[in-house]
Nucleic acid binder design. Structure first.
Lengths: 243, 243
DNA sequence: TTAATAGTGTCTGTCAGACACTATCAA
DNA sequence: TTGATAGTGTCTGACAGACACTATTAA
């Protein structure tokens, strides 16, 4: 048997039938009081002209890792460089794409609405923040993207019950009322006022900025995420949506 | 612009450089009081002769889905057909495999020790249940498999704190003491006796078989998983290992 | 003054932790 | 009888839910 070095020199990567590899992303934000996901109109076959999630092929020349592919796609569409990014999962089969066997790794990103500038050069008619607040996603998307989106939404809603994820949808400074409304928009139902403050403040993940926000009637303290704070996992879930 | 039908007729899948796609699995069981994962000795380059997780290439001719690939690999090595199977995640980059850009989707499986018969034809010297009870995984594995394994272990330990996952490691009938010892082997620390029974019994996921087990001093009731029971998510986590 | 939002006080219920207690067997 | 495991009783503490209460502003 030859050694590994010789094996690799003679290795022909093209002899196997390989699936196509892609990355798709559900890029979430909250704007105008609704949870929204970025969709783009396809400008190529298959599914030409239909709405889809942001995504595309791995560029093995340009991307060193799967995350590179995801970040590149995100940057191309939104200009955002450092979002919350979580891998949702991977779907691979021979039916989801008419071109044949494909594997797509799905990420979801949370970005603050004020951080986005939909990039110039993109026709605004071809990129859109779709409202997904009402758990039904009305629009059929290209490929199986509506199923992938539903999965990401489910994951997001589940995690909101026991983590601090929604802080990543907030601008740098925010009030507890704004944060609570973000939780509620994702969950689709109200949460108790006092419990919410107790929970967030005792988690030790935010700190006062010292500034007040005067938008509402009574001014409200503003907070920012502590630099040391990673995602906080609460020991008990909110009991809104019990599985 | 041509129509989609014509586009697909002319589509040449080989014009892009595609990563290799594989599936790797951490197949867990509990035997001899320890949490173990199935490892196999590689009989081909690269990493010839080194230990690795169970895995291999997607066979686009044979497998319709990624899960098919995972189940096929599991069946080939263990004969088990219906395990608990969960997708852990996907790692793709240009450094983990000397043959170039690869994408591997990682699953972990939980199987009852008594369900396994390491398949004949396999040299027993080339397939082994590795002890991973002491959170350090001592053996370096081929590729990045030790990292993948560590990730699966982390996921498993986390989920054990708030789910009923360990029931899938039990034989059909088991006592609550046996189930508790399975939890403890995974967590690596003792849990309170009374709390444990309260938690399991109030979750309504097991039912008495009516039979007693006489192994220990005092006989113990045996239970089986309720047919209706999916994975149970507890509203509060055990507070053993707080993140 | 009123309406609206910010923020507090405090009681309840649930459930994990702790730990002492009883029960039933083998040896 | 002793030792080991099965199983119960019950108190504590942490924290979510509920909801009434006060505080501070704009209009």
């Amino acid at each position: 048997m030859p050694g590994e070095r010789e094996f690799l020199r003679n290795y022909d990567a093209t002899v196997y039938t390989r699936p196509n590899c892609t990355v798709d992303m559900a890029i979430f934000t909250v704007r105008e009081g609704a949870l929204r996901v970025l969709t783009v109109k396809r400008n190529a076959h298959p599914f030409l002209g239909e709405w889809s999630l942001v995504g595309g092929f791995i560029d093995t020349a340009q991307d060193s890792t799967l995350e590179d592919t995801a970040m590149r796609k995100l940057r191309e569409k939104t200009g955002v460089a450092a979002p919350y990014l979580e891998q949702f999962g991977t779907v691979g089969n021979n039916t989801r794409d008419p071109r044949g066997w494909t594997v797509t790794t799905v990420y979801f990103a949370l970005i603050a609405s004020d951080a986005v500038t939909l990039l110039p050069g993109e026709d605004i008619g071809d990129i859109r923040w779709m409202d997904v607040s009402d758990s039904g996603i009305r629009t059929k998307l290209a490929f199986d993207h509506d199923v992938l989106l539903a999965g990401c939404l489910r994951r997001l809603r589940d995690k909101v019950l026991y983590t601090s994820l929604p802080v990543h949808l907030m601008p740098e400074n925010f009030t507890l009322g704004e944060l609570q409304r973000t939780y509620e928009v994702i969950l689709g139902e109200p949460t108790d006022h006092k419990s919410f403050r107790r929970r967030i403040l005792s988690a030790d993940i935010v700190e006062e900025t010292g500034c007040m926000k005067h938008e509402a009637k009574r001014p409200a303290k503003t907070y920012r995420l502590k630099k040391s704070a990673g995602t906080h996992y609460f020991l008990r879930t909110l009991e809104g949506a019990v599985r």
